[in-house]
Design a protein around this nucleic acid. Structure first.
Length: 457
RNA sequence: GGUCCGGUAGCUCAGUUGGAUAGAGCAUCAGCCUUCUAAGCUGAGGGUCAUUGGUUCGAAUCCAAUCCGGAUCACCA
């Protein structure tokens, strides 16, 4: 959802005349990375994504799970040996090894760095495959391994300005109780920075680097508090970018059975989901048998277009702010308020336009219009307003709803009035114009959602 | 407990700068393919807009209280 939202909002901003720079932050360091590394050292026997024929990011993810399994087991054993839960969690050998590895990483220990680079490389390879498949791209990528030290000098300045204060143990904090929040740490007692410190530094760096008017953070609503704190700190420090920070907060996607939890395996993997959607589009297409003359490449492209279109539309048709429910059993429908419905309307119009000669564009005689003809004109005229609203609200669902409404309006007209056998040549040309207009808007609107439209389906 | 977000049809969601009989899709039921692609179209049933009170000529929409659900309040990121 994050990816599709970011993409779509960027397109919508561009459509409103803004210049957009898409950036991505990769969490490529920290304790979670070390967990996978330790588990790989312990259990892999030198296995690689190639040797096991596994996608790189999934491969590394498997070792993250293996770490947690092993860790859990060790903790249970220690508790059985008489330790308290807290002691056991701290003393488990595999956890100690992981923490040591994090220190080694920060000190740049060669063999750790080498392993880190190798495993990260696998993850990136996997991500690349997924990003390419779903049509995602970024102009800038920030790696946390390179930005995690940012913001430390700002902390020092803040201390001088008395925005921050130092506790007896040397840790540095900001007091936000006057704003209804809590005290928040910005630097550990050992002098290392925390998450928010990096964000302060990165926010300023982005601002100085690109002179942006607005910095839009596409982040889940679980971090609403964090983003509030970030903006507040920037404001208190008098940073020039403070008011440019906008948190595009989106709700989580939940399953009918409840929240997705990676540790409990109740997650729907993006790759699996896309595969499933493409397979479903293949099944439907074959059943309908309308494209028997397509060659293999054309078929593959069509299945991707429909499958991805269905998925993206499904995720973008809901207000981003809202938590949404996804039912994996029922899968995503291809009828009604869906991507394929809109794509189908487009393909049908294109078919008409191929089969009917458009006139020389001479002046239209004025004449009475049927209600359904007027409906299309009225709806088409609303498109610019929909784009503006979507932009103002940072909300692609406005476009999804609009495009669906337009497609539905056209379909009603299509069933009621023939274009090829219109009452007069004038009527025919008028209707071809309306059809063409509708197709153009559908194509444009779907593009704003990152969805392709097929010429036939 | 503090802060924030949400509760609209069986399900998933629109609609909230206050305005007429609260709208879609799915699901259910009844129709429509000798005519431009039926992934479509037409119709039916289905609602105490969480509850209560308030403001108003008028409230799903604004205010208050209550109930229910979620997020968050880490020397994790």
């Amino acid at each position: 959802r994050n990816n599709f939202l970011g993409w779509s909002v960027a397109e919508i901003l561009k459509a409103n005349g803004y210049e957009v720079i898409k950036s991505c932050i990769v969490n490529d360091r920290g304790i979670h990375i070390c967990k996978s590394m330790i588990a790989w050292q312990l259990f892999a026997n030198g296995a690689t994504p190639q040797s096991t024929n596994t996608k790189g990011d999934h491969f590394v993810g498997e070792y993250y799970v293996k770490f947690n399994d092993a860790y859990k087991k060790e903790v249970e054993e220690l508790i059985a040996a008489g330790k308290t839960k807290d002691e056991a969690e701290k003393e488990a050998p595999i956890m100690k090894a992981t923490q040591q590895m994090l220190l080694d990483w920060e000190n740049g220990k060669p063999d750790v760095m080498e392993l880190w680079k190798k495993m990260n490389g696998w993850v990136y390879e996997g991500f690349d495959v997924t990003y390419k498949m779903i049509g995602s791209d970024f102009d800038v990528t920030y790696y946390e391994s390179k930005t995690y030290l940012l913001g430390k000098d700002i902390v020092q300045q803040g201390l001088d300005k008395k925005v921050f204060f130092k506790k007896e143990d040397g840790s540095i904090w900001i007091d936000l109780t006057a704003e209804g929040l809590d005290e928040k740490i910005v630097q550990r007692k050992d002098g290392t920075s925390v998450y928010i410190t990096q964000d302060i530094g990165l926010a300023l760096q982005k601002y100085e680097q690109y002179k942006i008017d607005q910095s839009i953070y596409v982040i889940g609503n679980e971090q609403n508090y964090h983003m509030k704190v970030l903006q507040l700190i920037c404001r208190k420090l008098g940073m020039p970018n403070a008011d440019n920070i906008f948190h595009l907060s989106y709700g989580m996607v939940e399953l009918t059975t409840g929240k997705m939890k990676s540790r409990e395996g109740t997650v729907v993997d993006a790759d699996d989901l896309v595969d499933e959607m493409v397979a479903t589009s293949k099944k439907h297409t074959e059943e309908l048998g309308k494209v028997k003359d397509f060659n293999d490449d054309e078929l593959k492209e069509l299945y991707n277009t429909i499958g991805l279109g269905a998925m993206k539309f499904y995720l973008l048709r809901v207000d981003p702010k809202k938590t949404m429910v996804f039912n994996p059993e029922e899968s995503i429908d291809f009828h009604g308020f869906t991507g394929p419905f809109v794509q189908y309307t487009y393909a049908r119009i294109k078919s008409i336009l191929r089969k009917n000669e458009t006139g020389d564009g001479g002046p239209f005689a004025t004449g009475p219009l049927f209600k359904l003809e007027k409906d299309i004109i009225v709806t088409a005229e609303q498109y610019p307003a929909a784009i503006e609203q979507a932009c103002a609200e940072h909300n692609p669902s406005v476009i999804a709803n609009y495009v669906f409404h337009l497609a539905k309006t056209f379909n009603s007209f299509y069933t009621e009035h023939s274009i090829a056998n219109a009452e007069t040549e004038y009527k025919k040309q008028l209707r071809l114009k309306l059809a063409s207009l509708t197709a153009n808007i559908i194509e444009s609107g779907m593009k704003l959602l990152g969805i392709h439209v097929p010429e036939r389906m």
